[in-house]
């Protein structure tokens, strides 16, 4: 086909240049609502990313009864682990592992059917499906509000077996020919809390010297400890476009004026928005030290990832510049 070399050459060139090709697509999460009808929760669910995914592992990594998601991307943040937060919100689960006795013991390809609360669901124990993805050797079934369910297995080889009624929340090993499930021990573990979204420092870490520009556009080093002057200091990340940020400025101004603590405002507005930002500050928070990003959005990297940072965010630092608290959202008036 005459276009082959053109396509290949052109694709290579465009990717070198940093262009996208069907890029910035976001992972899709469709919740089944019955009868193979689905509701799109992709953007709301929190397991979306604009990276280029290839493989998916849907596995209950923390053994809390719901399946988490591990994603393999082709570049950048290559691996994403999304913890499922939907367990524990009222719906029961059933976790099943299989052991065949007539055929190969792993029972790959067995079909398990669970009936609960008037609903029925069948799943296959697969090892290698989707695209280049191999799931873990167990199946998780949701039971909705039902307190119990019935379980049956169609084993490779053709033997069909009922395992009777089981309670919600059970972890069960189903052995071919036994007809009665055997509980297996939970290995529940807590997955770690995410790092603070958009922040490059954690509680307990010292805020480094930042290189920013002041209200006149002059580039300068900002040493938070010097500004604190022996007192605690609140470092507030804000933007003129951000209504909650503007709403909390008077509260910050009062804190600064009280004198027991200092306040430093770090503006995330682009240069074209700074004149308007300065007007806002003059009216709502006069006298508070305020700085902005350098050209190109630089200068705050040791502190925050601006792309991911929700604002307003306020870091509460002690007099030594060590983060003692992170306030997401507006600072509460005192």
């Amino acid at each position: 086909m005459g276009s082959a070399s053109y396509v290949t050459r052109h694709s290579t060139q465009m990717f070198e240049e940093g262009r996208s090709f069907s890029g910035n697509e976001r992972f899709k999460l469709f919740f089944g609502v019955g009868d193979a009808v689905f509701e799109d929760h992709s953007a709301l669910g929190g397991a979306d990313s604009n990276l280029d995914g290839r493989a998916i592992l849907a596995v209950d990594f923390d053994d809390d009864g719901d399946e988490d998601l591990f994603i393999h991307n082709i570049q950048r943040e290559r691996h994403l682990l999304f913890e499922n937060l939907l367990g524990g919100r009222g719906n029961g689960f059933l976790k099943l592992r299989l052991r065949a006795t007539a055929g190969q013991y792993e029972a790959i390809g067995a079909t398990v059917t669970v009936k609960a609360g008037g609903r029925s669901v069948a799943q296959v124990l697969s090892r290698g499906a989707g695209f280049a993805s191999c799931q873990a050797p167990e199946l998780v079934f949701g039971l909705g509000a039902a307190e119990s369910a019935t379980v049956s297995v169609a084993w490779p080889g053709g033997f069909r077996e009922d395992f009777g009624e089981v309670r919600a929340g059970a972890r069960l090993l189903l052995v071919e020919g036994v007809g009665k499930p055997e509980p297996f021990a939970a290995r529940t573990r807590s997955l770690p809390d995410p790092l603070p979204e958009g922040l490059a420092v954690r509680v307990g870490e010292r805020v480094p010297v930042l290189r920013l520009v002041d209200g006149d556009g002059v580039e300068t080093e900002v040493d938070v400890r010097a500004l604190a002057d022996g007192r605690p200091i609140l470092v507030n990340l804000w933007g003129r476009f951000c209504a909650p940020c503007i709403a909390e400025l008077p509260t910050l101004a009062r804190i600064h004026a009280d004198g027991e603590r200092r306040v430093l405002l770090l503006g995330t507005d682009a240069p074209s928005g700074r004149a308007a930002a300065a007007n806002v500050l003059a009216k709502r928070a006069p006298g508070i030290p305020a700085y902005y990003l350098r050209a190109g959005g630089e200068g705050l990297e040791p502190l925050v990832d601006l792309v991911r940072l929700p604002i307003p965010t306020t870091l509460v630092l002690d007099a030594e510049g060590v983060v003692r608290e992170i306030i997401r959202g507006p600072v509460e008036p005192e």
Binding site: G18, K28, F30, E67, L86
Partner: peptide, 22 residues
């Protein structure tokens, strides 16, 4: 991946996508 992520006894669909994001 076809899993019941919300445990409501209906299978859900999770799908990754995108060719190349520059």
């Amino acid at each position: 991946a076809l899993n019941d992520f919300d445990l409501d006894a209906c299978l859900d669909v999770f799908c990754v996508n995108g060719f190349v994001t520059g």
